[in-house]
């Protein structure tokens, strides 16, 4: 009980400190924090669904793009908070439809299906804009500063991780773990697999939609090739997998160092970025087979620190 209380206090304190950070840094520092928090939220939201179910989704950018596009379309007609609500609602609806359709798929079929989905949405948005509205490329002139975007993302990240923590302790979390380990067993013990998966997919997708919506004002100009850039899906996936997707803090621990690494590499090696990044990736796979968090934990227990932290213990070696 005391430990839980301490954890909450610590969490709140850390959050306050993070919220205070932008006042100390210039625009670039804020930009860095903003980008980092964006990916922390994306990776955490992605892991909400994909971590426990082991369904690797490449649809991240579909929802991200939907969010950004909703803002672009509505930026001059609705007040900002309402736009975010609409974006979340659109994301939720699409997620429910997609979720219902994808329940039958498994493994790599699901991976490519979600990729196809992202491309399909991009193509349809393009076609709609070209043929129905007669424009392509929309402008967002919202007076929202980098700091404000950062604070929104920070709040969303906190909610996402909080949600992950709550799910981990609830009945759903338990059900999910069973599904992840063996769907047949899960079905036999009376878990409604479809409903659990659908709910989780919808929550995860809605958060991702919001990330896109919140970040969009930063770019001024939006077109499908910009907001539906598949790189976003790949980076999210890589960050979450690297940190350890079935742990609460895994995505965060994957996103932060990777984001800083990307930044450092692109600042210092603009011409050999890809090569170094690629080699690092390969090295990481060989050196840290279980993700950053698992490795950090193992390092800790070896040094003799006390055991695990207060978090759901992931299934480490089993798949």
């Amino acid at each position: 009980m005391v430990r839980a209380l301490l954890a909450v206090i610590f969490f709140a304190g850390a959050l306050a400190a993070l919220a205070w950070l932008p006042t100390q840094f210039g625009a670039y520092g804020v930009g860095l924090l903003l980008g980092m928090t964006g990916y922390v939220t994306l990776a955490s939201a992605w892991a909400l669904f994909s971590g426990p179910t082991r369904y690797v989704s490449l649809a991240t950018v579909a929802f991200f793009g939907i969010g950004a596009y909703t803002v672009a379309v509505l930026s001059e007609t609705l007040p900002y908070p309402l736009i975010l609500l609409v974006a979340a609602a659109v994301g939720l609806c699409v997620a429910l439809v997609v979720g219902l359709a994808t329940l039958r798929l498994a493994g790599v079929y699901f991976v490519i299906f979600t990729f196809g989905l992202a491309e399909l949405i991009r193509q349809l948005v393009t076609w709609y804009e070209v043929n129905i509205t007669g424009t392509l490329g929309r402008y967002i002139f919202l007076p929202i500063s980098g700091e404000q975007i950062y604070w929104q993302l920070l709040a969303l990240a906190a909610v996402t991780i909080g949600l992950g923590w709550w799910i981990g302790r609830s009945r759903i979390g338990l059900a999910l773990k069973v599904i992840g380990d063996d769907e047949v067993v899960a079905a036999h013990v009376g878990i409604n697999i479809a409903r659990v998966k659908l709910a989780l997919f919808a929550v995860s997708a809605t958060i991702i939609t919001l990330v896109g919506a919140i970040q969009a004002p930063r770019w001024t100009y939006v077109e499908p090739s910009i907001v539906f850039n598949p790189t976003i899906s790949f980076l999210t996936l890589i960050m979450a997998l690297l940190g350890g997707a079935n742990r609460l803090w895994g995505p965060l621990l994957g996103a932060v160092p990777l984001f800083l690494l990307f930044e450092w590499l692109s600042a210092n090696f603009p011409n050999h970025y890809s090569i170094i990044l690629g080699l690092l990736f390969i090295a990481i796979v060989f050196v840290m087979p279980q993700g950053v968090l698992a490795m950090v934990e193992r390092g800790w227990s070896r040094v003799g620190q006390r055991g695990r932290k207060a978090e759901p213990a992931g299934t480490e070696a089993a798949q």
């Binding site: 690797v56 493994g107 790599v108 790949f234 996936l237 890589i238 997998l241 690297l242 011409n271 050999h272 970025y273 890809s274 090569i275 170094i276 990044l277 690629g278 080699l279 690092l280 990736f281 390969i282 090295a283 990481i284 796979v285 060989f286 087979p289 279980q290 070696a317 089993a318 798949q319």
Partner: peptide, 25 residues
């Protein structure tokens, strides 16, 4: 560990960058 799918995705993702970077140069 039975992690071949994830591992191969991550490793070939790295390989993708290496080949692309070398070609860029």
């Amino acid at each position: 560990s039975g992690n071949l799918e994830v591992d191969s995705i991550l490793a070939t993702f790295g390989l993708l960058f290496v080949i692309q970077g070398v070609m860029l140069v």
